[in-house]
Design a protein around this nucleic acid. Structure first.
Lengths: 250, 250
DNA sequence: GTCTATATGTGGATAGAC
DNA sequence: GTCTATCCACATATAGAC
């Protein structure tokens, strides 16, 4: 008895609304009643279709990650086949990995920016369930890209590359998850970091144009000199810093 | 009638436990009963001391951010005074900003890695309350560092620097918040990414040694060439990617 | 400042008719 | 597959004695 994905209308509607609500308020702060009322389905429908709230979250992600995993592997396959045994360029590997992800942001049928933000935010969620879920979902793809990066950047030690892959994932996820948040923090408008499409470029594309050079620069950066670790000889710290304009009351 | 910070034992105990629990389970998933029972204080004590659960979270952060903001500004002050009007080096600015943050991770009395993880995770929290709180707390410091970076990296356009500051914050926060998570995702041990102090280096220091070169490389990276944005000519995508080893069932 | 007791709401989940 | 009605655990918050 194979899983007959019936794709009933209500099932998809629930997934769509859940995706948006989980993104907007987070998993814990989103109640099933919020979801079912906005999706205009009965409360019991969620448990019928997904078994539980966790099951719903799981399927919200699976719906998108299946495509993403397949596409990422295919992109790497295509590049390696075309390279004919030669190592890929670092930029190619990053394009395959991050460019594929960002294509989701340009295509509503793949989840759009809603899903990208949800993904970025959920990756740091501390819950055991979510953590192990992502570990399983990502394992195969990450492993292949790691190997590709080892070959693409042979002059950087492997351990260092793994760290940097880690950093790159962070910069990316955070940049996506935090657009609305960090635009406040950084204070600038950056030519409107949020939703609109101006000069014909989608938000995802504008982000990518900025992010890719940054990631490439970080990936290929000069190795750390173990002699000067941080916070030596550089900042003559007053042990008790004097007051600055900050120290506001309350 | 000035705010008499009485620093009663219970108040501090509540803050300590709350900090740890919010980090471990997230704000929404942490109940006040979890906190009060672990802190061995009465349930009503939280509302007495902090007014509400939101008030508790606010004070958990304020306790640490006051120090961090002051120290970050002082570090920049010291550097600029010593530079005597000349622009700082990019590495100096990053050291002052990120090095100061990472010093928290080495000092339990400043919150240690527990607070760093909490901070990294909370920065992407979608809740309105948290977002505006951080925006206010960070505004002054970010503004000053932005200006310092403009001067330190004059050949990169200001808008681009703001983006990259954004990316750097992300790489940093994520690297901290996700150690336990992303160590699974990246699959490698990286010489034990988690808690222990080996070869005499704290987790924060080991992280810093890897992160700083990455950030510097990204900050100073060559400008994007508008001609070749991502995903052009590079990957000959099969529209429907063929199956790979992934397509697992269920 | 600390406690007990409780008000009042909301959460996820399910039983069982249709 | 969909609905109503309901169970019941647990949430935050407060009133008021000590």
């Amino acid at each position: 008895m194979p899983d007959n994905k019936l794709n009933s209308d209500t099932r998809e509607r629930i997934l769509d609304v859940a995706e948006r609500q989980f993104m907007a308020h987070g998993y814990e702060a989103t109640s099933m009643r919020m979801i079912t009322s906005m999706a205009e389905v009965n409360l019991a429908a969620v448990n019928y279709h997904f078994g539980s709230k966790e099951g719903l979250l799981r399927d919200v992600f699976r719906r998108r990650l299946t495509w993403l995993n397949r596409e990422r592997l295919a992109a790497l396959d295509a590049l390696e086949q075309q390279a004919n045994g030669a190592p890929l360029k670092p930029s190619q590997v990053l394009e395959a990995f991050f460019g594929t992800l960002l294509r989701i942001g340009e295509d509503e049928s793949l989840g759009g920016m809603t899903f990208l933000r949800l993904l970025g935010r959920t990756l740091t969620d501390p819950s055991e369930f979510i953590r192990t879920f992502f570990a399983k979902e990502y394992a195969v793809v990450i492993e292949r890209y790691k190997l590709a990066l080892f070959r693409a950047v042979p002059d950087v030690p492997k351990a260092e590359i793994v760290w940097r892959l880690h950093f790159m994932l962070g910069a990316m996820s955070y940049a996506i998850a935090g657009t609305d948040i960090l635009q406040v923090i950084t204070g600038l408008e950056i030519g409107d970091i949020s939703g609109k499409e101006e000069d014909g470029k989608s938000e995802a594309r504008r982000l990518s144009e900025r992010l890719m050079p940054f990631l490439l620069g970080g990936l290929r950066a000069a190795l750390p000199n173990p002699a000067d670790s941080y916070n030596q000889q550089q900042v003559p710290l007053a042990k008790t810093a004097r007051n600055t304009s900050l120290e506001k009351k309350r």
